[in-house]
């Protein structure tokens, strides 16, 4: 047992972040956009955990707690907006609300 290099953990976080970023850019359905945001936040939390365990400091896990709090807040507000979008326009297409009034 000789351990995992820190770079491997950070590269895993980078791969997950890149997949989430690509999904955020090419999906038009708002459910998938919100899921891509969750993936990106989760990979940021993974990077915090990897760095925290590499230096053997508990701050990484404390910061992960904040990331999870932010993800929960973002998911609740985003899903409320999603319900509003569907009630008003009967679609989940984010391009339906691209125009501004006034």
């Amino acid at each position: 047992m000789n351990g995992i290099p820190m770079e491997h953990g950070l590269i895993l976080a980078a791969i997950l972040f890149a997949i989430g970023l690509a999904g955020l850019m090419f999906r038009r359905n708002m459910v998938f956009v919100l899921m891509s945001l969750e993936i990106m936040l989760n990979s940021a939390g993974l990077a915090f955990i990897v760095a925290g365990t590499a230096w053997e400091q508990p701050e990484g896990q404390a910061m992960f707690l904040l990331v999870i709090t932010l993800a929960a807040a973002e998911a609740s507000v985003g899903l409320a907006l999603l319900i509003q979008l569907y009630q008003r326009f009967r679609t989940l297409d984010t391009d339906a609300v691209s125009g501004m009034r006034g």
């Binding site: 047992m1 000789n2 351990g3 290099p5 820190m6 990897v50 365990t53 590499a54 053997e56 990484g60």
Partner: peptide
């Protein structure tokens, strides 16, 4: 050069 030994926090 940092290696994660898996020590539990």
């Amino acid at each position: 050069g940092l290696v994660i030994e898996g020590e539990t926090l």
